[in-house]
Write a protein that binds this DNA or RNA. Structure first.
Length: 364
RNA sequence: GGCCACGUGGCGGAGUAGCUACGCAGCGGUCUGCAAAACCGUUUACACCGGCGCAAAUCCGGUCGUGGCCU
């Protein structure tokens, strides 16, 4: 344990493992607060599909408490006895609109600021987006090269092979490690090389850690997790996911009022003749273009893509629900693949274990 | 009962004699400005029995099964 570094506690795990409720319980216990580490809860209006219910309850609580304070005298409210429904502040939820771009760099910067401003209160970083968590825990130095439309537009014209051989020249080390067929990564690597005249591989570094971190992973047996996912998805439908998506679709995807995209998008392999390339993929989500629809990052979220397909009459509701469940399970698996490689994570199965870990960590 | 068609891996779906189809799912993995994304690797098959052929998922015969039409 490094001296003098602020402490943070990370609660991670696959979707539906129960992170939010454990995080909330812990935060109440030690009067901490919560920072969501979830790349989808960032978006406003996407509540049901991103399982935001707990944080939203907390927000409502906040309003309620505010009202109580407003209606009672200040001194009286300060003396209110401790109650179970105390409000725990939640951060990094509802911070941009669904048609905004968002990324790790922005996330990292903002979270650092929040933690700093709240010291010495204990933050609980709760979520399942591995990269976002890593950006904070390992203090990743993300090359300060924001996405550049011009460069990306040009690069989008080339095939994977062309991109790769170019990268090989500019940054052989990076070329060795990169997925040669992953255009998104190829383009970013080239973008950084071209803008900085430095190899991307040299810029990807970790800075000195900013925090003393306790990472807790919630371990749920596979079968049980699958059950939880199934029932969570059923609940989402009951809670009105379809209605939520309808509203979003109408507002952001149907043929009206949208600014042009910040960067161009090409679908599929440019060598194939079926490839479509366009500068504004948000054109009319409806005609045969589910891919187009999905180009708004927020709408690539599980639960949203499938319901949109359903609303476009491409699949039945049953199929949509089945797909949501399937995709969620696949996602959970990917999350585990990511987390597995970090040996610092303490995997636990029972809440009592977590409480002990936290207690020991805070006493150190 | 008769006639016709079809029977390929968990599912979809090519292949009509000699070489891994493929897609999805499953399983494993990658990950530094879109990460619930993007990408990579990979297991499982030719209904059954017999025949012709150097060689059969592929041709012939039969058995079983499925679907359709007819009586």
């Amino acid at each position: 344990m490094q001296k003098n570094l602020p402490k943070i506690i990370v609660i991670l795990g696959p979707t539906a493992s129960g992170k939010s409720s454990w995080g909330l319980r812990l935060a109440k216990k030690v009067s901490g607060y919560i920072i969501s580490a979830d790349s989808r809860q960032i978006y406003r209006q996407m509540d049901i599909g991103t399982a935001k219910n707990l944080p939203l309850q907390q927000n409502n609580l906040e309003r309620k408490v505010d009202q109580e304070i407003a209606t009672s005298s200040a001194s009286a409210s300060l003396r209110l006895p401790p109650r179970d429904d105390i409000h725990i502040p939640h951060f990094m939820i509802d911070i941009v609109n669904p048609n905004d771009d968002y990324n790790v760099a922005q996330y990292q910067a903002k979270v650092k600021r929040i933690i700093k401003s709240r010291q010495p209160q204990i933050p609980f970083l709760v979520g399942g987006t591995g990269l976002y968590i890593q950006a904070i825990v390992d203090n990743l130095i993300i090359p300060e090269v924001p996405p550049d439309v011009k460069i990306r537009t040009k690069l989008e014209l080339q095939t994977n092979e062309q991109l790769f051989s170019r990268l090989k020249k500019l940054d052989p080390i990076c070329a060795k490690k990169i997925d040669a067929k992953n255009r998104r990564r190829l383009i970013r690597a080239l973008e950084v090389c071209l803008k900085t005249d430095l190899p991307f591989s040299q810029l990807r570094q970790k800075d000195k850690p900013l925090f003393n971190t306790l990472q807790i992973g919630i371990s749920v047996p596979k079968k049980e997790l699958e059950r939880k996912i199934d029932s969570r998805v059923n609940d989402m439908i009951k809670q009105g996911l379809i209605e939520e998506v309808k509203i979003l679709k109408k507002q952001y995807l149907d043929c009206h009022s949208h600014e042009s995209r910040r960067y161009p998008v090409r679908y599929g392999n440019p060598r194939l003749k079926s490839t479509i390339s366009t500068m504004d993929p948000r054109i009319c989500g409806d005609n045969n273009s589910n891919k187009t629809t999905l180009k708004l990052p927020a709408f690539s979220g599980i639960g949203y893509q499938e319901i949109i397909q359903y609303l476009q009459n491409k699949i039945s509701l049953e199929q949509a629900i089945k797909l949501i469940k399937q995709h969620t399970k696949q996602y959970a698996k990917r999350q585990m693949t990511w987390f597995k490689r970090d040996p610092r994570i303490h995997w636990v199965t029972k809440y009592a274990e977590v409480e002990k870990l936290v207690k020991d960590f805070l006493e150190k």
